[in-house]
Design a protein around this nucleic acid. Structure first.
Length: 573
RNA sequence: CGGGGCGUAGCGCAGACCGGUAGCGCACCGCGUUCGGGACGCGGGGGUCGGAGGUUCAAAUCCUCUCGCCCCGACCA
C-alpha cells in the first residue's frame, strides 16, 4: 500500500480527548476516530489490526471444533423476557421499538438468541456436542464508556456457545475453549494470564478471565507464583485464619474520638494499627432493613462475596439517613455492640482478633477492648473481604502477589441456566429428555488491540507484535532523488511479490516526518532508503521495537525481510 | 448517577475576571528554495466562539437553561 494514497490520518499532537496510552496512540496513528462517547469508526489502519486479530480467533475457534455463524444484532424482547434478562440487564441493554411499537434490543451478548436457535433445531443427542460462534458488533450502554476501544458502547466481540449432553462433555468443551484462548492470546503476542473469575450478570457455575497484564489495567488480580493459582480479586478466596487461643480479655471501655469518622482518622487519633480496628459496614438489604458486615480495618469488603452469601444480586451501602434511623448512630461511629434488630455478618479475619476497636453507636465515641462473643454476637461468619497481596494462596499457602490486568476474554460454564429457562432439550439414546449443558465464551476484539498497544509501545508510538501489525514493513525513502525513488519502488515491488505486507511512504515529505509517522504507526520493520545508503550500497533496516539496525546491500533486503517476518510470525505460535 | 473539568478554524490552545465586532502554533492551498529525525520565505483560504433564551447601544466575554465531551467512583469483552 502506498501511504500517499492511503487514508491514514496521523496526528502530530496528542489529542485532548485521550489520556490512556492505547487510546491516544490509536487516534494518533489514524486507526480510529470518535463518533460519540464510546462509539468509534475504524479507519483502514485500525481495521487491518482488527481483521488480523479476528483471523487468529477464527482460526483457533475452527481448530477447536466451533462453527461460525452470524446471529442478528437486533433481537425481540420476548426472548429476553423468557430469561428475565429484559428486566435484569437494566439500562445497559439498548432498547428500541419498531414501527408497530414492538420491543427490541441491540444484542449485548447472545445466549437467548442461540438457545432459541438450538431448541428449534436440535432434538437428538446425536447432534451434540455443538459449539457455535460469531464475530459481531455488540451493544452495551455502559455507565461510563472510556479509554477508546477499551470500553465502548459499541464493540466487536467474538462470542461462542457450547451445548453438551453431560457435565463431563461440557467440562471437556470448556477446557478446549480455554486452551484455544491460551493459543489465541499467545499467537497475538500478548503477555497474559488466565484467572479464576466471578460469573457476573451472565451467570453460571465457573468461569475464567483472560487478563493481559498491564499496569493501566482496570482489573486487579492476585496470583501465586508457586502454583498455577491466579484469580480476580473479586473472586479470590481468602483462607480463614487459624483459630487463636483467647488471651487475656481486657474490660470494655468507651473512648472519646471526636470527628474520627474513618479508620484512618481513628488510627491517627489513638495511635494504633488499622488491623486492630473492626469496621462495621451497613448494607441496604431490604425495605428499611440493613445488614451489618464486620471487616478488619485494613481489609476491603468484597461486595460480590457478600452479595452471593445473602443471595442478592444487588447490594448497596445504606444511606446515612437509614443508618441513623436503624442504629441511632451517625455513619462513622457504627459498631456491633448493642446493635439490635440487625443481622451481623463477620469476615473470618475478625475471629482472630482480641481486644479490638469498634464504633460506639454514639457520635464521637468508639469502644476499645471489644471481644466477641463476650460483647456481642455474630450471626454468620464467612469470607467477605477482598484478597490482597500477602494473603496465603488457597492452593499452596504461599503469599499471594497482585498485578493489574485488562480483561480481554472470558469463558463461562453456564450449566443449564439458559436451557432450563428456555426449554432447550434433547433426547438421549433412551428417549429421555434432558436440558443441554451450556458454556459461553467471549473475546473483545477491539479491546485485545488496545491491550496489545498498552503492552507494546514506547514514547514514540506503537510497537506492534508481528502477528497483528497492520503492516509488516514500511519503506521510508528519506531523500527526494530519483535514484532513491526508483530503489524504493523496486523494493516495494519485490516485497509485494513475496506476499509481505508493505507500506511505502511515497509522500512528498521530509525524512523527519516519515520517521515519526512510521514510529507512531509502529510497523515492526522500517527500511530506510536515502542517497547516502544507496551510494554505499547499504540500506538500513530498523527493528521498531528493539531499535536494532541492520545494514544490507539493496539486493539482499527483500530476502532478509521475508525471513525475519516469517520468523516473527511463528515465534509466538 | 454522584464528584471534578472542558466546549473558540481540521488539531493543540490564547482571548473571558475587566463586554467594543476573534487571535497564535501546527495542518491546509499556490509559488520558490530545501530534503537521513516533525525545513524556510512570500502569498492565500478557513471560525453562526456547542445550542437556546436573557441583560446591554454593543456579548466569545455577564446571567439562566440546555446539549455534548473528558477524567475519578459503582458495571463488563
Amino acid at each position: 500500500m502506498r501511504l500517499s494514497q492511503s487514508f491514514i490520518p496521523t496526528m502530530r499532537q496528542d489529542p485532548g480527548e485521550a489520556e490512556v496510552v492505547s487510546h491516544r496512540l490509536m487516534l494518533r496513528a489514524g486507526m480510529i476516530r470518535k463518533v460519540a462517547a464510546g462509539i468509534y469508526s475504524y479507519l483502514p489502519l485500525g481495521l487491518r489490526v482488527i481483521r488480523k486479530i479476528e483471523s487468529i480467533v477464527r482460526d483457533e475457534m475452527n481448530r477447536a471444533g466451533a462453527q461460525e455463524l452470524l446471529l442478528p444484532i437486533l433481537s425481540p424482547a420476548e426472548l429476553w423476557q423468557e430469561t428475565d434478562r429484559w428486566d435484569f440487564y437494566g439500562k445497559e441493554l439498548v432498547r428500541l421499538q419498531d414501527r408497530h411499537e414492538r420491543d427490541f434490543c441491540l444484542g449485548p451478548t447472545h445466549e437467548e438468541v442461540v438457545t432459541d436457535l438450538f431448541r428449534r433445531e436440535v432434538q437428538s443427542y446425536r447432534q451434540l456436542p455443538l459449539t457455535l460462534y460469531q464475530i459481531q458488533t455488540k451493544f452495551r450502554d455502559e455507565i461510563r464508556p472510556r479509554f477508546g476501544l477499551m470500553r465502548g458502547r459499541e464493540f466487536i466481540m467474538k462470542d461462542a456457545y457450547s451445548f453438551d449432553q453431560n457435565e463431563t462433555d461440557a467440562q471437556r468443551n470448556y477446557q478446549r475453549m480455554y486452551d484455544a484462548y491460551c493459543r489465541i492470546f499467545s499467537r497475538t503476542g500478548l503477555n497474559f494470564r488466565p484467572v479464576e473469575a466471578d460469573t457476573g450478570l451472565i451467570g453460571g457455575i465457573s468461569s475464567h478471565e483472560f487478563m493481559v497484564l498491564a499496569n493501566t489495567g482496570e482489573e486487579l488480580i492476585v496470583f501465586d507464583p508457586d502454583s498455577q493459582y491466579a484469580a480476580n480479586v473479586e473472586r479470590a478466596e481468602v483462607v480463614a485464619p487459624p483459630v487463636k487461643e483467647p488471651g487475656a480479655l481486657s474490660p470494655l471501655e468507651k473512648v472519646s474520638t471526636p470527628n474520627a469518622k474513618s479508620v484512618e482518622d481513628l488510627c491517627a487519633l489513638l495511635k494504633i494499627e488499622a488491623s486492630l480496628v473492626v469496621k462495621t459496614l451497613l448494607y441496604h438489604t431490604g425495605d428499611n432493613e440493613i445488614t451489618a458486615v464486620l471487616i478488619r480495618g485494613d481489609h476491603h469488603a468484597n461486595e460480590i462475596k457478600i452479595q452471593r452469601f445473602l443471595g442478592l444480586h444487588d447490594l448497596s451501602l445504606a444511606s446515612p439517613e437509614l443508618v441513623e434511623k436503624v442504629t441511632a448512630a451517625p455513619v462513622g461511629f457504627v459498631g456491633p455492640v448493642g446493635l439490635s434488630n440487625v443481622r451481623i455478618l463477620a469476615d473470618n479475619a475478625v475471629s482472630a482478633l482480641a481486644n479490638f476497636i469498634v464504633g460506639g453507636n454514639e457520635t464521637d465515641v468508639h469502644l476499645i477492648n471489644v471481644n466477641q462473643p463476650r460483647d456481642f454476637a455474630i450471626d454468620d461468619w464467612g469470607d467477605f473481604r477482598q484478597a490482597q497481596a500477602g494473603d496465603p494462596s488457597p492452593k499452596s499457602g504461599a503469599p499471594l502477589q497482585t498485578a493489574r490486568g485488562i480483561e480481554v476474554g472470558h469463558v463461562f460454564m453456564l450449566g443449564t441456566k439458559y436451557s432450563e429457562k428456555m426449554g432447550a432439550t434433547y433426547l438421549d439414546s433412551e428417549g429421555q429428555k434432558h436440558h443441554a449443558i451450556m458454556g459461553c465464551y467471549g473475546i473483545g476484539i477491539g479491546r485485545t488491540a488496545a491491550a496489545a498497544i498498552e503492552q507494546n509501545h514506547d514514547e514514540k508510538g506503537i510497537c506492534w507484535p508481528m502477528p497483528i501489525a497492520p503492516f509488516q514493513v514500511q519503506i521510508l525513502p528519506v531523500t527526494s532523488s530519483e535514484a532513491v525513488r526508483l530503489a524504493s519502488e523496486q523494493l516495494y515491488e519485490e516485497l509485494n511479490q513475496q506476499q509481505i505486507e508493505v507500506l511505502l511512504d511515497d509522500r512528498n515529505e521530509r525524512g523527519g516526518v516519515k520517521f515519526n509517522d512510521a514510529d507512531i504507526i509502529g510497523t515492526p520493520f522500517h527500511i530506510i532508503i536515502g542517497d547516502k545508503g544507496l551510494a554505499n550500497q547499504a540500506l538500513e533496516i530498523k527493528d521498531r521495537k528493539t531499535g536494532e539496525k541492520v545494514l544490507l546491500p539493496p539486493n539482499q533486503v527483500a530476502d532478509w525481510i521475508r525471513k525475519a517476518v516469517t520468523q516473527q510470525l511463528h515465534m509466538e505460535s
